[in-house]
Simulated scan of single mutants.
Amino acid sequence: RPASGPAQLARVGFVAQDTPTYAALSVADHLRLGARLNPTWDAHLAEGRIRDLGLDPGLRVGRLSGGQRAQVALTLAVSKRPDLLILDEPVAALDPLARREFLQGLMEYVAEHGTTVILSSHLVSDLERVCDHLVSLVASRVQIAGDVDDLLGSHFRLTTARRDAADLPEGMRVLQATHTERQSTFIVRMDTPGNEPDGVLEPLGLEDLVLTYMAEGAAGPARRPVQEAQR
């Protein structure tokens, strides 16, 4: 059974949304605690990360910034050398610079050690930079899943003279449509190349792609998000 014993838990690293640490303990205390609790603890890795981050090992964690505390939490998680690293909204409360530094450190670790990472986040722009596979959930239901490159290569925004979705070429799945008096804009999925439609076809960014599927999931199967805007 998953997580049924210490041997399995030792193979999983976890960083929660609030990046929990002990405010009264020093950075060095956290590393000593990690070493005592984890039989696979890599002291060289832990000490090297703290040194590279420029953190004073003797400083109490409660005096660190939010970004620095997040880095300490990540250090504790990766220094147990897990096979799987689970991150639950780890950068949600961080400023943009701290988010970038956290994710950069994460990617450097993954590139060196090949660890599998599951990252939960509402910050889609961050996902596009660091993830190679996407699963989007709405109300605990999967709306879209696939390799990021494949998803970006099959979703487009089509702008054309006003027309009905039924008039688009075969092979286009319309996910969203908006209309003005003279113009129609469609978010479409094309898994295989087909007839080029009249109009302007542009690649869809990951954030727009995710938001489209979230809107579709929130609307339910009975209705698609079609909006009318008269000019």
Rank of each mutant, 00 (worst) to 15 (best):
A222M: 11
L55D: 05
V148S: 08
V15M: 05
A43Q: 13
G194D: 08
L151V: 11
S184R: 10
V210C: 08
V61A: 15
S79D: 03
P57N: 12
G58W: 04
Q227W: 04
T212P: 09
T160C: 15
E228K: 01
P225D: 08
T185P: 13
A145H: 15
S26K: 10
Q230D: 09
T40G: 00
V15Q: 03
M190E: 13
L87P: 01
V78D: 09
D208A: 13
D164Y: 00
D18L: 12
W41V: 01
L151S: 02
A16S: 09
S121D: 08
V124T: 06
K80Y: 01
V61F: 11
E207Q: 14
R173H: 11
L127N: 13
L31V: 10
E112A: 15
A218Q: 11
A111R: 14
L123P: 02
M190L: 08
S120A: 15
A28D: 06
L211S: 04
R163E: 00
V15I: 03
R224C: 07
D164G: 07
Y109G: 02
L168P: 00
V188W: 11
L106N: 06
E108S: 04
G194N: 11
A177Q: 03
R141V: 12
M172K: 02
M214S: 08
L209C: 06
E108A: 10
T19G: 00
E47T: 14
D52H: 11
H155Q: 07
F102I: 05
V124S: 04
E108Q: 10
L106T: 02
P2L: 05
L209T: 05
S121V: 02
A77F: 01
S121N: 03
D191E: 15
D52L: 05
V91S: 14
E196P: 11
P57S: 13
Q71W: 07
D147L: 10
R141N: 15
T19W: 04
L127Q: 13
Q68L: 09
L59W: 03
G13I: 00
P225H: 02
A24W: 08
L25C: 10
S79A: 12
A229I: 13
P96F: 04
G48R: 15
P221V: 00
A10I: 00
T19I: 00
I50F: 07
V200Y: 03
D198T: 14
L209D: 01
L211I: 14
D164S: 06
A46M: 05
Q230V: 07
V138T: 02
Y213H: 15
D208P: 05
T178I: 12
T160R: 09
G114Q: 02
S140N: 06
T192L: 12
G54D: 06
L209I: 09
V15A: 00
R63C: 08
E216S: 05
L64R: 01
V15N: 03
G146C: 10
R99T: 08
G153E: 12
L127D: 14
A93W: 09
V188C: 11
D150T: 12
P20A: 13
V174Y: 03
R81Y: 02
S140D: 11
A161Q: 12
